[in-house]
Amino acid sequence: MPSWAELPIGQVVRLDADPDAVALALDPLPDDAPAVVTYFAAEERSVADLAASVLRELDKAAIALFPAWLPGAEGIEGPSGVNVAAVQALARGRASVTGHFGPFLAELARRALTGGLSGLAPEVRAAGLVRVLADSFGRARLAVLVRVPDGLGTAARDVLVAGCEWLAHRGRAGVWLAGAPLDDDRVRTIPAPLPAPLGGVPEDIPPAVPLPGTADRAPAVAYPPVAGRPHPGSASEQALEAALSSRTWAGGRAWNQTYRPGPLAVPIRVDLLWERERCVVEIDGPDHRAPAKFAADRQRDVLLQLDGYAVLRFSDGQVLTDMDTVVRQIGQFLRNRRRAEG
């Protein structure tokens, strides 16, 4: 079985694994893995349409992750002329020492502050976005994990494979397909480097109830968080950080940290951590009701608890609709821990 580092870059392959198991194995990103962005494919009429869809979603991710890919731009916010000039100068300077294409990076930095669409060619954008997204996570390479939906017809499968080949070649990204079978001779199937399966996966978990108005808004792309920041794609993490920022008792918190229970243990990524108080806060979206993820959550909670951590779990819905209660309960726990420690 290959390691994550041995999976091909610049090619399209199909992973012989359940996509949910792959997602669990990549959270947190293994040390030897490239940065991985997940694209939830839909039926497209042409290769050009698919390429446009992928680039649009990768572009959104890059803008959301700003300034992780542009060192020195931290704290520069707002579309003023001074700010735009500052980030463009930083982008040109970074391009001159890293090999990024300067005009692309400068344009992306400007759009991170002002919005708007790119005027550059798709081939330029593909190569630039792949490098920027890899940089955001401190990795030299990027893979796009494409989740293939069920029910694609022959023509749609041909479009998907051809579009993925375009992205792999133009962007120099690894493109890893997972999900529904493709039955396409152009794509070879390889094993995924997954850990041993979890035991005791429950099968009777009730389905998650989506927030009002969100049932049909599945994201087209997903990507890891950047350590130290709320996930830019998570409205609940952003909202909780905004609520905590004005509370003096909330000091010492750290978002999206990787914790290793022991030297040989599998690392655990936690949403929000107070290390001194040994408190972990997790915010669960509907995907946490899937049996494999539910079981993985229970296992990691036990490992954290055995190491002295309390794990406080809230749903997206609780955070977004009853913030006062969530903040009050977190604050009560932290104050109790601090009193107990003297």
Rank of each mutant, 00 (worst) to 15 (best):
G342W: 07
V82P: 02
F104C: 09
V226L: 01
V270L: 11
P263K: 14
Y259C: 08
R229I: 00
I63N: 00
A64G: 00
D271A: 08
L211K: 04
G151D: 11
D49H: 14
V124F: 02
F40C: 08
R139E: 03
P263D: 15
G285I: 04
V311N: 07
A127M: 04
D150G: 12
G75N: 00
A21P: 00
S245G: 06
R313S: 08
G153N: 13
A168P: 10
S136V: 02
L182C: 09
R141H: 08
G81H: 11
A33Q: 07
G228T: 03
L272I: 10
Y259H: 12
R217L: 15
Q299M: 09
G138T: 03
P202M: 03
R188T: 09
R170D: 15
A48R: 15
H169F: 10
L244S: 09
A168G: 12
L264I: 10
E165T: 11
R56M: 10
A42L: 07
P286A: 15
S315T: 15
V13H: 03
A42E: 11
D287A: 14
P19K: 01
S136Q: 00
G174N: 08
G262V: 07
W4L: 14
D204S: 13
A68C: 02
T325C: 11
T114N: 09
L113Q: 08
P103M: 11
T258F: 03
V326Y: 10
P193S: 07
G342C: 04
D284Y: 05
R253N: 04
T258M: 09
L152F: 07
P286S: 12
D284E: 12
Y259R: 10
A296C: 00
V280G: 05
R131K: 12
G119N: 06
L58S: 07
G251N: 06
R313D: 01
P225C: 09
E74K: 02
F137C: 01
R260K: 13
G308P: 12
W69D: 02
A85R: 13
T98I: 04
S246Q: 10
D32L: 08
G116L: 15
D27V: 12
V124I: 14
G119C: 09
E275H: 04
L26Y: 01
G75M: 01
G174F: 04
W249H: 14
P263R: 15
G102S: 15
R269G: 07
A340C: 05
R14V: 01
L304E: 06
V175W: 03
G93A: 15
R229P: 00
T248Q: 12
R14D: 01
V13G: 02
V326H: 08
L160T: 07
G179H: 02
D324T: 14
L117N: 12
G116T: 12
I283G: 06
P8M: 09
N83S: 13
V36P: 01
G81S: 14
A35L: 03
G163K: 05
P103D: 12
E282I: 08
I76T: 02
G252H: 06
R298A: 13
P79E: 13
V130W: 00
I190F: 01
S236K: 06
I283N: 03
P267K: 11
A155D: 13
P210K: 05
D301K: 00
